[in-house]
Write a protein that binds this DNA or RNA. Structure first.
Lengths: 144, 144
DNA sequence: AGTGCCCGGTCGATGTCGTCCACGCGCTGT
DNA sequence: ACAGCGCGTGGACGACATCGACCGGGCACT
């Protein structure tokens, strides 16, 4: 994991569709060597997968909210319960007064309310505190 | 934006590296037609870009935290100030007691503290409330 | 210091794939 | 009924990923 690897990852984050020749030229390597480096980055698990970034508003998920979930029990074994709610994009165990933080995307605030209802139905959940996003400044990839 | 388009986007989210032939076979289309549909999805802005997903821990960002930022002034014009802090991955204007919510990734809690210091330095910021993530259940792509 | 090994690079060949074009089918509106 | 058009198919061509053979520099061991 040297400077060249970091440069490759950074450029792949911006555009994973470019050719290995172009990628290599940008960092001063041949296409073959570039291919080999990227293969190893995948093998080592640095690059998990190549995917497409989708505009949430274009696929009917214009409402974004973060929900603090309070509980009366240990939530560490409830991963599946949160995964089963399709509108939940992220779920984290957190330190602090609440015990779980989830990121929710829905088409309308009505559907958001329905997600909250389903959160209450999860075993051990004693309350929720939803924070609706009014405007997203930016969402970007990891710094290197 | 019909069922086929949604299926294409879903499969591209899982693996953007597969061939148009394989992609087309999965939805019952020829490679050429598949190529054309994906081209239009990009043109319409449904697909924003193709990128690689990187393991945060592998690139030295093992600590994740969400920070509620309180302010004594309107923060709607402060996008650049948040963008300038490289460790901030997301920044949103929110409804509620705080005014901005940011997602921060750092290598250590010490660096997290440094980010909080830099947040305080932003004009109008009157306080922060950081929530450290202990365990991430999952982070996944948008539902369709 | 000599020597052998290995990691990591260049170069070139080959088969697959993206990309474009000409054509045909079925819907729609007049 | 028919013209127009959006959307699909199939084939041709060039670019690209992918692999193997070769090579040089650094390192450990003698």
């Amino acid at each position: 994991m040297d400077d060249i690897d970091r440069a490759l990852v950074r450029r792949l984050q911006e555009d994973a569709g470019q050719s290995y020749a172009a990628l290599g030229a940008a960092v001063g390597l041949s296409a073959g060597a570039t291919h080999e480096r990227v293969r190893k980055l995948r093998e080592r698990g640095v690059i998990l997968r190549t995917t497409v970034e989708v505009d949430p508003a274009a696929v009917g998920s214009g409402v974004l909210a973060y929900v603090m979930v309070d509980s009366r029990a240990w939530m560490g074994d409830s991963r599946e319960a949160f995964e089963a709610i399709a509108e939940i994009q992220e779920a984290h165990i957190i330190a602090g007064s609440a015990s779980v933080l989830v990121k929710v995307r829905t088409a309308t605030t009505g559907q958001l309310q329905d997600v909250l209802r389903r959160l209450y139905a999860i075993d051990g959940v004693s309350g929720t505190q939803a924070t609706v996003v009014l405007e997203t400044f930016f969402e970007r990839s990891l710094p290197l």
